[in-house]
Design a protein around this nucleic acid. Structure first.
Lengths: 258, 258
DNA sequence: CAGTTTCGTGAACACTGTTAACCGTAAACG
DNA sequence: CGTTTACGGTTAACAGTGTTCACGAAACTG
């Protein structure tokens, strides 16, 4: 959890460092194929398990901590990849970003499950807050906003939306760079939710393996889903170019790691 | 796992009964909010834990067993609900079926996670087989097939499909009542995969709680996703009627359990 | 310096899944 | 029918898991 007041006292710096070590060690464990456990993290840090309870209240909080970090680290990588295309081409950037997201989910299914398939009870406000500042969410909303600035695709006005949805887009609980979006334009967030739902759907289906392995390998389901979203996002004119980019990005990853 | 050769010897009947008790007890545990554990199932059956190893090879197999049963039982309920509309109206039936699926996922998120968010490795052929005969899959493909018989919506021909997808629809690994679909019509299965992916996406998103609780409560995301699929399924002419049915079904469940 | 907070330990509890050796009883076979 | 085999259960034990509690040492604070 990012603190705004950066602590300066020696103790607090030490504490912050320990937090960092916790998530680092946990991420290592996950990468090695072991499953995340309080005790494993502790012993690898050269410390006994109860010591960790000075830093997290329980196991779930540990999970949330590393989930947030995994999300942050992954998004940072995607941002780098995306920068192969200029800032003036957000449509290409979004395409690359989506492919990166999928590739990450496929190559690190355990991490993906931790971050995105980890159940969150509606009442659990703590975890919802964490979700709200999720880095990947900001990443995708921001790209969508940039696309809108450039292509001006149509979005529903507030009074076209269900009252409950009006509430949700005006005072969003989901991760979204929304502060800079004027209230009358918040209908865009509805499009964000819908497109995110579509992207999340295929990727989760593929990452959890709940479909034919050959279909996953081919990437056609993912590809078709993305192409369906070109039109609603005003990208019909770019269809050919973006399809080319999409195919190139997908084959790039395929060749890079067998 | 359903055996075709129904055993008659006393021992085998006894054994079958024990299997039934295992999944029944496990389902009870889940319903009570406890989490599924080998030991808990055993002690509740009045038996020690190692005894269960005469029936399942390991914990994962127990999970698979009850997952299959949960899927079967849930689908049986949906089938009943669906029968409120005549067999000659498969579009209405599919609508009801989708709402039931969502409602089940929302009211029993743990069970849903067990059946549908439970990761399956690509190499795990055993679990893939179980998936292939999944009851809910057959339920939805069958409805889609009936809709096609009635409305004759367009579907891709085999040579329009990616070679890998051709393979997948001709020799499907996913649950699908496909035997009675002639090879040249197998393009329908591609539409099935795509629509299932969309349905699976929203429902998983909602069931795992990875979006604004208000959006879930309103049901608008689910509703919009379903409505988007009317057109590809040749149901544009039925839009008004089916929307009415959809709304009615959704409010029905909302009022029935707070 | 004295007092207090912080951070770690060790022991213990209540659980997990899983393996091993063992044994009575019920079915199967000659 | 008697003998033998195999099935279905037991107990004991191992290696883990999350979590709590009482304690102590070390580090900061007045």
């Amino acid at each position: 959890m990012p603190h705004l007041r950066v602590p300066v006292t020696r103790r607090e710096r030490q504490r912050e460092a320990t937090y960092d070590e916790i998530v680092a060690v946990a991420a290592d464990l996950l990468d090695e194929g072991a499953d995340l456990s309080l005790r494993a993290v502790a012993t690898r840090m050269g410390v006994t398990a109860p010591a960790l309870y000075r830093y997290v209240a329980n196991y779930q909080q540990l999970v949330d901590l590393v989930a947030f970090e995994l999300d942050r680290a992954a998004t940072a990588e995607w941002k780098k990849e995306v920068e192969r295309y200029p800032e003036t081409d957000p449509a290409a950037r979004l395409t690359v970003g989506c492919v990166c997201f999928r590739q990450w989910a496929l190559s690190k299914p355990r991490q993906f499950a931790l971050v995105f398939a980890n159940p969150i009870a509606a009442a659990d406000t703590e975890r919802r807050e964490l979700l709200t500042i999720s880095t990947s969410g900001h990443f995708f909303t921001d790209l969508l906003w940039q696309i809108w600035e450039l292509y001006q695709f149509p979005y529903p006005s507030l009074d076209e939306l269900d009252p409950v949805i009006q509430d949700a887009v005006l005072n969003p609980l989901i991760p979204a760079k929304a502060e800079h979006i004027p209230p009358e334009d918040r209908g865009i967030l509805w499009l964000y939710m819908r497109s995110w739902s579509a992207l999340y759907g295929v990727v989760t289906l593929e990452s959890t393996g709940h479909c034919d392995p050959r279909v996953i390998e081919s990437g056609q389901l993912f590809r078709a889903t993305l192409l369906d979203w070109l039109e609603p996002l005003g990208l019909d004119g770019e269809r050919e170019r973006l399809t080319r980019i999409l195919d190139e990005e997908m084959s790039r990853h395929r060749s890079s790691d067998g």
